[in-house]
Design a protein around this nucleic acid. Sequence first.
RNA 1: GGUCUUAUCGUCUAAUGGUUAGGACAUCACCCUCUCACGGUGGAAAUCGGGGUUCGAAUCCCCGUAGGAUCACCA
Length: 550
Amino acid sequence: MKDYKLIAEKLFPKCKLTIEELEDKYPARNLPQGAKVTRVAPSPTGYMHIGHLLVALVDRRLAKQTAGTFYLRIEDTDKNREVEGAIKVVIDSLNYFGLTPDEGEAEHGKETGVYGPYKQSDRLSYYEAAAKYLVENNLAYPCFASTEELEKMTTEQEAQKIRPGYRGKWAIWRDKNDEEILAALNEGKQFVIRLRSNGDFENKIKINDVVRGEREMSENDLDLVLLKSDSYPTYHFAHVVDDHLMKTTDVVRGDEWLPSLPIHLQLWQAFGWSPTKYCHLSPIQKIDNGNRRKLSKRKDPEANVQYFNDAGYPAQALIEYLLNLLNSNFEDWRKANPATPNTEFKLDVTKFPVSGALFDQNKLDDISKNIISGFTAEQVYDFSLEWLNKFDAEFAKTFSANPEYTKAILSIERGTPNGRKDIAKWSDVKMEFSYFFEPFTPNIDEVKSLLVGIDWNNIVTACAKMSEQYDINDDKDTWFGKVKNIATELGYSTNGKEYKADPTKFKGQVGDIAKGLRVFITGRTISPDLHQIMKVLGKEKVVTRLNAFK
RNA sequence: GGUCUUAUCGUCUAAUGGUUAGGACAUCACCCUCUCACGGUGGAAAUCGGGGUUCGAAUCCCCGUAGGAUCACCA
């Protein structure tokens, strides 16, 4: 006769907490009907993966859309992988992207909310109580198998070409009697707690995922480890215990978890608890050697959300990119509601894609350009400076030496219906506006190479003439009238169509002259509205630059 | 290898048995224009292959093929 109570007591002599007492610590949440309780539960590896950000985004939206709660739990059950300061990285990232949790783990080891502790390493006694309950009810048992024994098992199974795993007759400790167990315990052997699986691989069960709908999968027949020999729980065990106690309603996670869903369902059943809903997200991928693969922490810098931060993408841009990935109708909504905060967009779980999407930098840039073009000069100034201070201290000094001047630069063609969309990220700002700042010393050969095909002497003359006539108070038409006059004096057509009709009658057209002015003033052939640029630069700089190659 | 899963323009996707297979990004051309950009107009560009079911298939079924996920005391 087996005495499960006795075994449980011997296994966990220090555990006095019963499962009932444990459950009593977690009262029902006082939330409206239909409110969702979601969580993001990263491991503290010192790294925020873009996939985790995606999960957090979905979690937070689902909670907000239903007046529910979104919390942060730290899954630090693998001591080998833990990194110092990792929790701060997670919290900072969530805050940066506007996905601050309502409760859970917070900075400096503090936490908010009454459903904690929110760090799994602080919950070990709870997992013990739960494991003890399972042992008492013959739903779990101790296993003293050594690593060598397990390796041998796997080798034999491979040799026999059968599905590997600790189960059935291979589960050598599954049916040991009390004496053998107690003897092993007395010897001080290390043990793990395993689930006593009642599943049959030949049996199919119906599983339900909110994205994919109803599916069939084989029952789990593996006697999986629930508590490791260091008495930390495995993911499977901690997930079910925590999400039950913390009253999670919807588990959102990567679809790499889909195959272990039968395990989790089996665990819910073992405890007699009703399972959460499950929402499995497909991964963000990239092409590698012609094949797709998940964005990898080791190989792909863009797998780390810090990458977008460092490149200077506004947080909103990455969020809207992800929203678009989740619900492809987001971009239609955005077009119809250009000024509405994206938090107003209602995420539809049933429209989530079921296969992984390739990360698309072009699309992100486009979204980001649109967002930044809607910012005020003030906002662009603040964000740019914040980024520059962090990554380009030298240019930051130049940039912020005269804030009014810099803001005037950033105001050019901003906020107009034809607003420019040339900044995708704050790291573009330096390239885009450097010619407004001194030193401005373009090399004559480079300048000439930009003006190939236009008579150099004519350009120099035109620039000199403009420098004499330039009046900073001229409006655009007056200013351009002067450009046309100079063009005419030098034998250039003032009308492009006229010139095209008979090029032999002219040395060129007014565009050539304007191009010359532009290159002398900005050192490039591409720039925003030249009239406004000259106004912002001021007469002194304009005159100097126009006469630089006289 | 077992199990699960996916397959529409280069990319993200729409079209839940009847559409000239739609949109967005990227790309190309033209227009606008002092340049670029913005904007506008237009172009090129897709239903993995083979069988069925049906009056009719991107859509349903079967078989292939290709990709992805998973098979730990990691999550």
